[in-house]
């Protein structure tokens, strides 16, 4: 090997050790900044408001975060492959009403022969979500339509299908068994939080330890190189939309179960909070870079900030402003680090 290559790597290794303090600090902040922000805000709120750290409030925050968190985890898969899924909010409502119509005791809204067992209703909702995602996935991966456009179409179409299916009316009076996933608890932990935790662990394992996870990162990082390396790029792209749609369906059913009825207007603008959580969590919209742990922290940060502002009695309009600032600040930090590199 040539001497200069040796030197390059030696120099690079030395640079790693000897980096000046500013770069090091910036790196650290960019890597752990969001976690740090979350901790600082929690500490601040804990000092400022005694109620914040109560078990009841913590569970409340987690429960409020769980629906956005589940959507954001699905969105992470999509964004990692350079895509976007704008349709999740509409799929929340669509899967919600279809599933609820199988589990309602209201004779006007029920599907003939119902109410059906809760598990069947849940399976139906999940299937609706995955099917919507599959349509997105096929349009994006087979017909090369930009994800933004394909899922924008689904955003509109799924909302329309929801209204058609439910006749524009909510689906009320869900069976107690069905409502368990929204209102029940496991050892004192609300079911939405339990489901969110399971979804997170599963996603973390899939992205970190399976071949599919490797494919997602490769396809997002460089689809051409992934193709040459024998990775089925189309199938990987299709699958991430199916995952996102399925999780949107799951979130829609939890939402319906929590409130006791499935609304046709449920989930409006939910895609924005989900994208926000992913972006705040450090996943790059350019694809190939990001972690589901980041998304978890991003979703929690949004949840804690909303909760904190609620506790302080701040008008909810401010919450939107602050969320906007958070999104942009998180990406600016990331960019600052990239420039330094």
């Amino acid at each position: 090997m040539p001497a200069d290559e040796d030197l390059t790597s030696a120099r690079r290794a030395a640079a790693e050790d000897n980096r000046d303090w500013g770069t090091y600090a910036l790196d650290w902040v960019a890597k752990y900044g969001i976690l740090l922000a979350l901790i600082l805000i929690c500490v601040g709120l804990a000092i400022g408001n005694e109620y914040f750290l109560s078990t009841r409030n913590i569970l409340n925050v987690l429960r409020q975060t769980s629906i956005n968190g589940i959507l954001a985890i699905g969105m992470t898969f999509v964004i990692l492959t350079r895509g976007i899924d704008l349709s999740v909010g509409s799929v929340v409502a669509f899967a919600g009403v279809v599933s609820a119509s199988l589990a309602t005791t209201s004779s006007t809204a029920m599907v003939a022969g119902g109410p059906y067992p809760a598990l069947l209703a849940l399976a139906a909702g999940l299937a609706v979500g995955m099917a919507s995602g599959a349509v997105n996935g096929v349009i994006v991966s087979r017909f090369a339509v930009p994800a933004f456009v394909a899922t924008l179409g689904m955003l509109s179409a799924a909302r329309g299908l929801t209204l058609l299916y439910a006749g524009g009316r909510p689906v009320p009076a869900l069976t107690p068994e069905y409502r368990f996933i929204g209102t029940g608890d496991l050892f004192g932990i609300p079911m939405p939080v339990v489901i969110f935790a399971l979804v997170f662990l599963l996603a973390w394992w899939v992205l970190g330890a399976t071949r599919f996870g490797r494919n997602v990162y490769a396809v997002g990082g460089n689809p051409h190189a992934a193709t040459v390396a024998g990775i089925n790029v189309r199938r990987t792209r299709l699958m991430v939309y199916v995952i996102s749609g399925g999780l949107a369906g799951l979130a829609g059913m939890i939402l319906a179960a929590r409130t006791g009825s499935a609304l046709t207007q449920a989930g409006i603008a939910y895609e924005l909070d989900a994208i926000a959580a992913v972006v705040i969590g450090g996943t790059s919209l350019a694809g190939g870079v990001g972690r589901v742990t980041g998304t978890l922290i991003g979703a929690l940060l949004i949840g804690v900030v909303n909760n904190g502002l609620d506790l302080m009695g701040v008008e909810s309009y401010y919450q939107q402003v602050i969320k906007g600032v958070l999104i942009v600040a998180a990406v600016m930090l990331d960019q600052a680090r990239n420039r330094r590199e």
Binding site: A209, T210, R211, F212, G213, R214, N215, Y217, A218, G220, G221, N222, A225, A226, A229, G230, I231, S284, G287, G288, V289
Partner: peptide, 25 residues
């Protein structure tokens, strides 16, 4: 190359099926 990925992931990229068991790496 997938420039966003690590050296290791780039090396293993075309051999993933043989470096795991079923879907697991």
């Amino acid at each position: 190359l997938v420039l966003t990925a690590s050296v290791r992931d780039n090396i293993c990229m075309a051999r993933l099926k043989k470096l795991g068991l079923g879907p697991m790496m």
